[in-house]
Design a protein around this nucleic acid. Structure first.
Length: 498
RNA sequence: GGUCCAGUAACUCAGCGGUAGAGUAUCUGCCUUUUAAGCAGAGAGUCGUUGGUUCGAUUCCAACCUGGAUCACCA
């Protein structure tokens, strides 16, 4: 009531002052740990027999004091163990310090392990050292184990708070920390997979004078010294292709892209993507890599092949299906889409309530029908080939059917997981395609590609035939960790300022 | 952007026209093998924000803010 910000912080600051008055530095430089807690938890009988004195460090997560003894739970990255602290063992002065400790403090405990009367394996402390005082109490979460199952009380579960104060979420909800540990393992495994295949990992500019490689609106920023606007990249594609022109044959980049668009369960303004390009490879090669990589991540990193994702049971084992986009759309419509006129198709779309963007031709309409009605039916992994060339400005046309591009997207659980094509390396054709895109921009399609003269010039020097592919990492992690919201797999998702 | 739901103590929630409650957490006291420790006592809230209706609003109404779900848009 008196002192803002709140009573708790005020009280803890008072404790802090008392600790200082005892001549103790609440934030010392030195700490020493002889063992991780997990090490003590193995071969418990042996530890007790050895009676070796150990020092462990970590955060105090609970305290149960009773007079001249007390118990505490100490947790480090590896595990948690109970501390037994008795005044007659650690001495009066040291016990005074213990009384001034709170859950949330970092401490170093020294002693030997033993079993308490109730059979709890614990550290019998002969010394406690404060490593860092907490002055803002952590939310009080308690847990109890019943029949081997952990019941948590007053779980820190407010979704908004979990995202805004992610450190608390990680601290108080171990299963959420686990998601990010899995994410790290997945990303490491992807790098190993690519490196093993002879790909070179590269880093290309995030700040770009022009953006390209995808259909999206960019973020714009400004460089003061150069006095020029720059764009945050929406894709790495055009720079990676320049590297293939430059003589690299296999490159990949795994990093953030930025798209200035709506946010929802599957879109965050900054997200992680891997793109890779391989000279002399083709669509077959790209499908093999996608299938092999994702199966590897599922089986070898996660350890299973079946996932429950977005209300669907998805099995990644077995040879993945392949389908042709026009065939799927024809099947959906009940008539051969290749033999329908633009006018008929247009009427069909309007009848279905689809909004037809200006400048659309037949390919765009077919894609619209696919996106709105067919995608969601592709639950088990499916490579969808033959995307209309019209919506694939950076992909080669298929020789036997120039209406479509030599391109596929991979769909799982109704969502897109990969996008790959035979990269267009005809500089004149590429120029013509980008100029088509420029016309769309003039019609108000903000997401259309811009003409990148430097990229076109690079192509004029010659680029080998190749396969290229992009895989969204966040969505892959969502699938593999069975999370339906992208915010659950991004540590600090974008939130409005409050 | 549309629609629906939510916002009350540090956490999890109840209440709903008469200016607030519980459990946990916190503080004080007792307690040398506890473990969601226990027992006794205490403190703690601009009831998301701003207006309106009313004698009186946390409660009803409106707008706004933040988040979630969903649709639209969008890779």
């Amino acid at each position: 009531m008196l002192n803002k910000p709140n009573q708790f912080i005020r009280l803890r600051k008072e404790k802090l002052a008392k600790i200082k008055a005892l001549g103790i530095n609440p934030y010392p430089v030195k700490s020493s740990r002889t063992h991780y807690i997990s090490a003590l938890l193995q071969d418990r009988e042996e530890w007790i027999q050895k009676a070796e004195e150990v020092s462990i460090t970590g955060r105090l997560t609970a305290m149960r004091r009773q007079g001249k003894i007390g118990f505490g739970d100490l947790e480090d990255i590896s595990g948690k163990i109970q501390l037994y602290v008795a005044q007659n063992l650690i001495g009066e002065e040291n016990y005074e310090l213990f009384k001034l400790c709170d859950p949330g403090d970092f401490i170093q405990a020294t002693g030997k392990t033993f079993f308490t009367q109730t059979g709890e394996y614990s550290l019998k402390c002969n010394n406690i050292k404060l490593l860092a005082k907490n002055i803002r109490p952590l939310p009080a979460v308690k847990e109890k184990i019943v029949d081997g199952k952990k019941i948590r009380y007053d779980e820190f579960s407010d979704i908004e708070l979990r995202y805004r104060k992610r450190y608390l979420d990680l601290l108080l909800n171990p299963e959420h920390r686990k998601v990010f540990e899995m994410r790290a393992k997945i990303i490491t495994a992807i790098r190993n997979f690519m490196d093993y295949r002879g790909y070179v990992e590269v880093e290309t500019p995030i700040l770009q004078p022009l953006y390209g490689g995808a259909n999206a609106r960019p973020f714009i920023t400004h460089h003061n010294t150069l006095d020029m606007d720059l764009y945050l990249r929406i894709a790495t594609e055009l720079y990676l292709k320049r590297l293939i022109v430059g003589g690299f044959e296999k490159v990949y980049e795994l990093g953030k892209d930025f798209r200035n668009e709506g946010m929802d369960r599957t879109h965050n303004p900054e997200f992680t993507m891997i793109e890779f390009y391989e000279a002399y490879s083709d669509l077959e090669g790209m499908m093999d890599i996608a299938e092999e990589l994702i199966k590897h991540l599922a089986l070898d990193v996660i350890g299973k092949d079946t996932f429950f994702y977005r209300h669907h049971q998805v099995c990644l084992s077995g040879k993945w299906k392949r389908a042709s986009l026009p065939d799927l759309v024809s099947e959906y419509m009940g008539q051969d889409v290749m033999n329908i006129s633009f006018e008929e198709l247009s009427a069909y779309c309007k009848n279905k309530g689809l909004v037809i963007p200006p400048g659309s031709e037949k390919g765009k309409l077919i894609a619209l029908i696919f996106e709105n009605f067919v995608e969601e039916t592709l639950i088990q992994p499916t490579f969808v080939c033959d995307f209309p060339k019209e919506i694939s400005p950076l992909a080669k046309a298929k020789p036997e059917n120039p209406f479509v591009a030599d391109r596929f997207e991979l769909f799982i659980a109704g969502g897109e997981f990969a996008n790959a094509f035979s990269e267009l390396n005809d500089p004149l054709e590429q120029r013509a395609r980008l100029e088509e895109q420029a016309k769309l921009r003039d019609l108000g399609i903000d997401e259309a590609n811009v003409v990148d003269e430097d990229f076109l010039e690079a192509l004029e020097y010659g680029m080998p035939p190749m396969g290229g592919q992009g895989i969204g990492i966040d969505r892959l992690v969502m699938l593999l960790t069975e999370n339906d919201s992208i915010k659950e797999v991004i540590l600090f998702p974008q939130m409005k300022i409050t």
